[in-house]
């Protein structure tokens, strides 16, 4: 079965995830994810709470707690990350792969000046120390648009706004010159006008550095804004993926269609929202068959038989639904 992104095999994959599974205390959270990210591309992952969009990357980078059982394969440029020794992962995390999170204030150390924290990343991943590290940290602050960069190096996280803290996180992520930046809900905690600033910044650094970006978000609008490829997840599986245009203009899976119809619009006549009935299934007692079937308006008895595989809709557009003509 072709995985997300495999169709353009001209370019070597930067990161290649195959059959990734995660279970917490025997309860499956991720049920087999295939995903490829190529150098320089921006991939969006959308889905509701608990669908596994964050767990995918935490598992890939070995950031899950010990009681999580992880299976499958995650290859970064030919190197297997799952089960890799700690030293290898330490080099990868913050080096080739950087990650930023929703709440920058809690990701930063509250008692260490933000400049020092960026310098630490520079020391670990690029061997810079002293004045060289200081100068580079300043340059990074400038690059991410922090006003008065030299002065701000001496600030603590609590002295800065949420938007500025997220800029510090992005500066720290860029410190290791990553090939891939994973941004997990990077603007969810920010105000609308600041969200616009950070999205612009992410787009700019991604293009300037030729860096690949994985944007994890519950907000379809944010993903549409930045990403050229989109994957939709539901209950631990990838249920649809394709180009942003394919997903947003002609969604195929009933869940993706439902998500888009559930969004209020800013223009045009107001219409009643088409809510998806019911709620996400509890991962501990999922029935065999399509996980979305209990909420799906098109479900039939055939949907309960087994989990549908991703089927080709058009080009690189694939969806895991029996109602799609094979």
């Amino acid at each position: 079965m072709p995985a997300f992104g495999v169709q353009s095999s001209v370019m070597e994959n930067l990161i290649s995830i195959r059959g990734l599974t995660v279970a917490f205390d025997g309860v499956p959270a991720l049920r087999g994810i295939d995903l490829d990210v190529q150098p320089g591309e921006a991939v969006g992952l959308v889905g509701e709470s608990g669908c596994g969009k964050s767990v995918t990357w935490l598992a890939a980078l070995g950031l899950l707690p010990g009681h999580a059982a992880v299976g499958g394969s995650v290859r970064l440029g030919g190197q297997e990350l799952l089960g890799a020794p700690a030293q290898t992962l330490d080099k990868v995390r913050g080096g080739r792969v950087a990650m930023i999170f929703q709440d920058p204030a809690s990701a930063l150390n509250p008692v260490i000046r933000v400049g020092r924290q960026v310098e630490e990343a520079l020391r670990l991943h690029r061997g810079l120390t002293g004045a060289a590290a200081r100068a580079e940290a300043r340059r990074l602050f400038e690059q991410v648009g922090i006003p008065d960069p030299a002065g701000r190096l001496n600030s603590f996280a609590h002295e800065m706004s949420g938007g500025q803290n997220q800029r510090v996180m992005i500066a720290m992520a860029l410190a290791g010159r990553p090939d891939l930046l994973i941004a997990d809900e990077p603007t969810t905690a920010l105000d609308a006008t600041i969200q616009a600033q950070i999205l612009d910044l992410l787009r700019r650094v991604q293009q300037d550095h030729g860096m690949a970006l994985v944007l994890i978000s519950h907000d379809l609008g944010v993903v549409a804004d930045l990403c050229s490829k989109v994957g939709v997840m539901y209950a631990g599986r990838m249920i649809e993926h394709g180009s942003a245009e394919q997903i947003f203009q002609s969604p195929s899976h009933p869940y993706t269609r439902g998500l888009l119809a559930a969004l209020p619009e800013m223009i045009g006549p107001r219409r009643r929202l088409e809510a998806i009935q019911g709620a996400v299934p509890n991962p501990a007692d999922m029935l065999p068959g399509c996980a979305f079937a209990p909420r799906c308006t098109q479900a039939g008895s055939d949907c309960d038989a087994g989990t549908p595989d991703l089927r080709r809709v058009a080009g690189g557009h694939r969806a895991a639904c029996l109602r799609i003509a094979a």
Binding site: T193, L199, D200, E265
Partner: peptide
């Protein structure tokens, strides 16, 4: 600026007004 900052699937980012500075 607020209205233009609403991320909407299908609308390109270029129409967005990005304000400088913090609230």
């Amino acid at each position: 600026a607020l209205v233009s900052a609403v991320p909407t699937p299908g609308r390109t980012a270029r129409e967005r007004i990005v304000l400088v500075g913090d609230p």
